Amino acid sequence: MLVGPVGAGKTSLIHMLQKDSQKAEKTQSIIFTDGAIDTPGEYAQIPRFYSALMVTAMQASTVAVVQDATDLKIALPPGFASMFSRPVVGVVTKIDVPGIDREKARERLLQIGVKEPIFFVSSHTGEGLDELIEYFGKGGVHNE
């Protein structure tokens, strides 16, 4: 299940992971597709939708919180990731854009309670996707 603010690149990432070439459109509701769960950014940014995310996460093996490397404003509250009863990983998207700050993006994920691993990916170039695919292929479980 991918969770994150509006415009973070969740849908584009799912399309790349599934090798689907269709253009990403605004996600209006929770979408289940080929083993992935895509969530609207508003669900992560508006607290009254948190219960929908928590219930939906029960159907996921892993929750991936997505952070846009080009937009580092604080969009999710501290401890946000702790609401999920599934393993939570971080994914920093749009790393192909010049001038991004990877460490600041990583810090944003840590601030909301994401633990390692944190993956750095580009849905445009494919950079970093192999590591993410490998992680999900192992069931999304990371060993402490």
Score class of each variant (00 low, 15 high):
residue 98 P to K: 15
residue 100 I to S: 11
residue 85 S to Y: 12
residue 23 K to L: 08
residue 140 G to L: 09
residue 98 P to N: 12
residue 84 F to W: 14
residue 84 F to N: 06
residue 141 V to N: 06
residue 15 H to W: 10
residue 131 E to N: 06
residue 103 E to I: 11
residue 45 Q to S: 15
residue 83 M to R: 10
residue 32 F to R: 12
residue 110 L to E: 10
residue 7 G to E: 11
residue 29 S to Y: 04
residue 40 P to M: 04
residue 35 G to Q: 06
residue 124 H to A: 10
residue 138 K to C: 00
residue 6 V to W: 01
residue 28 Q to D: 04
residue 53 L to I: 09
residue 47 P to W: 08
residue 119 F to M: 01
residue 11 T to M: 14
residue 87 P to Y: 01
residue 6 V to D: 08
residue 55 V to T: 15
residue 36 A to H: 14
residue 137 G to F: 02
residue 41 G to M: 13
residue 96 D to A: 10
residue 137 G to H: 10
residue 74 I to M: 10
residue 51 S to R: 13
residue 72 L to H: 08
residue 7 G to Q: 04
residue 129 L to K: 06
residue 71 D to P: 01
residue 110 L to N: 01
residue 102 R to A: 11
residue 29 S to M: 08
residue 18 Q to A: 11
residue 6 V to C: 10
residue 63 V to T: 10
residue 18 Q to L: 14
residue 55 V to K: 15
residue 137 G to V: 07
residue 99 G to I: 06
residue 23 K to H: 14
residue 10 K to Q: 12
residue 10 K to L: 01
residue 10 K to V: 03
residue 32 F to G: 09
residue 60 A to D: 03
residue 86 R to F: 14
residue 13 L to W: 01
residue 36 A to R: 13
residue 54 M to Y: 14
residue 56 T to G: 13
residue 144 E to S: 07
residue 21 S to H: 15
residue 127 E to T: 09
residue 107 E to G: 05
residue 142 H to D: 03
residue 75 A to M: 13
residue 101 D to P: 04
residue 40 P to C: 05
residue 139 G to L: 15
residue 95 I to E: 05
residue 138 K to H: 13
residue 44 A to C: 14
residue 30 I to G: 08
residue 5 P to L: 03
residue 28 Q to S: 11
residue 102 R to K: 12
residue 113 G to Q: 06
residue 97 V to P: 03
residue 89 V to C: 14
residue 62 T to V: 15
residue 129 L to A: 03
residue 12 S to H: 05
residue 128 G to A: 09
residue 108 R to A: 07
residue 90 G to R: 04
residue 131 E to H: 02
residue 109 L to V: 03
residue 87 P to K: 07
residue 10 K to G: 04
residue 52 A to F: 15
residue 110 L to K: 14
residue 94 K to V: 00
residue 72 L to A: 09
residue 125 T to S: 07
residue 81 A to K: 08
residue 45 Q to P: 09
residue 125 T to H: 05
residue 31 I to C: 08
residue 113 G to I: 01
residue 9 G to T: 02
residue 7 G to A: 13
residue 59 Q to N: 12
residue 61 S to I: 09
residue 4 G to Y: 00
residue 15 H to R: 10
residue 15 H to K: 15
residue 99 G to Q: 13
residue 1 M to R: 06
residue 112 I to Q: 00
residue 89 V to T: 13
residue 144 E to P: 12
residue 73 K to A: 07
residue 72 L to W: 12
residue 105 A to F: 12
residue 121 V to E: 02
residue 32 F to Q: 03
residue 61 S to K: 14
residue 17 L to Y: 04
residue 110 L to G: 02
residue 133 I to C: 02
residue 94 K to E: 05
residue 137 G to L: 07
residue 115 K to L: 06
residue 65 V to H: 02
residue 83 M to T: 09
residue 62 T to I: 00
residue 31 I to T: 06
residue 110 L to Q: 10
residue 84 F to D: 02
residue 80 F to D: 13
residue 38 D to A: 12
residue 44 A to N: 12
residue 116 E to M: 06
residue 69 A to T: 04
residue 123 S to I: 01
residue 104 K to H: 06
residue 29 S to A: 09
residue 57 A to F: 04
residue 33 T to W: 13
residue 114 V to K: 08
residue 16 M to W: 01
residue 38 D to E: 15
residue 91 V to N: 00
residue 58 M to I: 09
residue 9 G to L: 03
residue 97 V to W: 00
residue 84 F to V: 03
residue 144 E to K: 13
residue 138 K to Q: 11
residue 61 S to Y: 00
